[in-house]
Amino acid sequence: MKYPSLFFTIAVGSALITFNLPFKDKAKSPFEKDLVLRLLSIDPLKIIGNKNISNPSQKDSVPQIELVVHDDKGTYSWGTQIRYTIKVSDKIDGDSKYGEINSNAVLLEIEYYPVTTEKQTRNNTDISEEASQQNGIILMQRSTCFRCHADKARLAGPSFSEIAKKYNKSDIKALAQSISEGSSGVWGSSVMAANKNLTDKESEQMAAYILEQGEKRNKWILIGLEGTFRIMKKPENSAKGIYVLTASYTSTSQMRGEESIILRIE
């Protein structure tokens, strides 16, 4: 099903980009007003939201996220390495400043959009589909997956990209079985531990997320409270672009806080 959505149109260079941030209530809550104010007043643009909020009174229990891009210039060159820190504060879980936040539950999603002279619209997202994808990543964050796997980089196990190159959606059940039962000999001599605590549905959601994220060439995910990433080299067909960075934390109370920043690339 589709939920009502809040649209933002942002000027980036000479282009207009429309973002669709889905919310369960379209009502003009104080939180939403605050969101718009922040949106208009911060440069580089920051968007703050929480997808789990159903009424404003829940705002206080949402983890507070601050995404810091060091040496923040607003505009960046192609190929630049960026260092970031995600600060998390949650009423129940604690504060990242004191080492109280499980870094495995902290996620940075990075998405690249080319900027052209034409108006671009981010596709409306089917919230039920997105929720399903979100389950996949959250399940992985709660498990031990990210100790040996990363999105685009190689750790002990294959990256999501490598897995997505080798398998497709018809292999989800087989991949889910490997996740549950463990696996060896498929990717060199590496051995993957079994994850007996997962249900079939959970391991299938994880497998689906891996395949979906793995085949995305312009979206990256990174786990943890800090790190670096590199902006891609200048594509042939685009002089300018934007990177949307979304930091999120899912608390032990299952509340998800987010903050997004837009980086202009030229």
């Binding site: 040996c148 980089a153 190689r154 750790l155 002990a156």
Partner: peptide, 19 residues
């Protein structure tokens, strides 16, 4: 900074360790 050559960055991104 300045950025290391591509061949070094490739190693950072692709070297795997036994777990």
């Amino acid at each position: 900074t300045p950025q290391l050559p591509d061949e070094k960055i490739f190693i950072f991104d692709n070297l795997a360790y036994d777990q």
